[in-house]
């Protein structure tokens, strides 16, 4: 599914990723934990193709494709999804229009038929119900005036509609109260299955109580310093990153 080997990347000439090796097999959920500034968000942006990040070495393949050579929209159509830590507000772009355009762009890229407004609305309402989102959120501008929790739920709604085979969740738990956290976690868990993988990036162990990962990796100073089972998250919570690094 996702295989990263020796990945190095820099921003504005400053090296952030210093050789990442990571394998996320099909059907598994992996967590990446690490302190602020360890390179977590950089990794998610490099994988999704944001401008401004220069890959200086190594490789990342996704279902056999060299994703680093692809445009962001091509990566999305290939099944990669990034849930943003800070979802962007788009005044003047209706949420329904945005969601339908995205879904149809991906369907088109994959050679599938596009959904008309009615078909889309039916599908969106069904998915929104599961996320306890009101219909009203379809009519508003994308993320405009949404609370922190609503923005994150809107990210999960996009994931539920676009049905990626790999989702990268970049600190999706930040700014969420416990109820919103559960809704978001339920949304991710509902996607789990043999054809879905996820990379859950988080600072805290809390989210991993609800999305239980198959593997946990600790990212520090641009490298994976330790990997283990879900119990590693508990260990980090109890001992802190410094202790883990000292032991590594």
């Amino acid at each position: 599914m996702l295989r990263i080997e020796g990945l190095t990347a820099e921003i504005d000439g400053k090296q952030i990723l210093k050789g990442i090796d990571l394998d996320v097999p099909t059907g598994e959920v992996h967590a990446i934990m690490g302190p602020n500034g360890s390179g977590k968000s950089t990794l998610s942006y490099v994988l999704s193709g944001r401008e401004g990040y220069e890959v200086t070495g190594g490789s990342a393949t996704f279902n056999g494709h060299d994703i680093l050579a692809m445009e962001p929209e091509e990566r999305a159509a290939a099944g990669l999804f990034l849930a943003f830590q800070y979802p962007v507000e788009l005044p003047g772009v209706g949420n329904a229009t945005f969601l339908r355009t995205a879904l149809n762009a991906q369907r088109k890229a994959r050679g599938e038929s596009e959904l008309d407004a009615m078909q889309f609305l039916k599908l969106a309402r069904e998915r929104m119900k599961a996320l306890s989102m009101s219909d009203d959120m379809l009519k508003r501008g994308v993320n405009v005036g949404f609370s922190g929790g609503e923005k994150k739920r809107n990210e999960i709604l996009q994931m539920a509609l676009l049905k990626p085979s790999l989702a990268i969740l970049d600190e999706t738990d930040s700014g969420l109260d416990i109820d919103a956290l559960k809704i978001v976690a339920d949304g991710v868990n509902a996607m789990r299955g043999p054809d879905f993988s996820a990379l859950v990036i988080t600072h805290y162990q809390r989210l991993l109580d609800y999305i239980v990962p198959d593997r946990v990796h600790v990212l520090m100073h641009g490298r994976i310093v330790k990997s283990g089972g879900p119990e590693l998250a508990q260990e980090l919570e109890a001992q802190g990153y410094a202790a883990v690094q000292a032991a590594a």
């Binding site: 401008e51 943003f84 962007v88 788009l90 945005f98």
Partner: peptide
């Protein structure tokens, strides 16, 4: 904003 849209599969 542009990256957000493209990351959802919408061509540039």
């Amino acid at each position: 904003s542009l990256f957000y849209l493209r990351s959802r599969g919408i061509p540039e």
